[in-house]
Design a protein around this nucleic acid. Structure first.
Lengths: 102, 102
DNA sequence: AAAAATAACTTTGTATTGCAAAGTACTTTA
DNA sequence: TAAAGTACTTTGCAATACAAAGTTATTTTT
């Protein structure tokens, strides 16, 4: 896109995945059910979004058993943190343009 | 989605459509070729994005001939302006959460 | 004055995405 | 011990995004 509208990372530019990344930035780590409740998405939907983030190594998932139940703990990677930082910087520029016109 | 992550209008939450809306907010009106050059998208891609914005009445398109050539002039509607305003407000809240964690 | 080129789009075909229903592998409760 | 619950993953399908091809109107070559 043109100079004013730099490319927004399509892996992050999704309502669910952006929210996941931001939650992880705060929480340092979170488990599957916490994210599911917080974001009010279906299991299947969350699962596929997480896979997509994992595939590009923006998050990592650790699976283990806690109280005999499976427990997936998800956390941001350094790469993910950097990608989110770049994404928000670009998006800030978009929003600045939007606010200047008001 | 949960309380912290309000629903982002999916019609606006697209790289191209968000940029179109912001450009229109500044320019008051713009023509097809201007948007195409500014956003560096293909004709077909831009056309379908504009249709989507028009369908929900966020923009309106006026078609006429200028210098014997077709010319489509696109502008934001009041509804579109309000929708963009709400979208940016919600997105600002997302980004605030992202920046607080840094 | 046909034929080829250009402008400004729209439509079509296809690959990718997003979502929830269904499936898996257990564990807890009745 | 059958039924219900937990914590996910996989599957099927509808919606989206994109560019290639098509359309319409006009202009420039030959």
């Amino acid at each position: 896109m043109g100079t004013n509208f730099a490319e927004l990372d399509p892996v992050i530019h999704s309502r669910v995945r952006l929210a996941v990344m931001i939650l992880l930035l705060h929480a340092e780590s979170a488990d599957f059910t916490y994210l599911k409740k917080e974001l009010e998405v279906s299991d299947g939907n969350l699962s596929t979004h997480l896979r997509k983030l994992e595939k590009v190594k923006y998050i990592k998932m650790q699976k283990r058993f806690e109280n005999r139940k499976p427990k997936t703990t998800i956390s941001l990677t350094e790469k993910g943190r950097n990608a989110l930082d770049e994404y928000t910087t670009i998006l800030d520029a978009y929003l600045l343009l939007a606010s200047k016109a008001k």
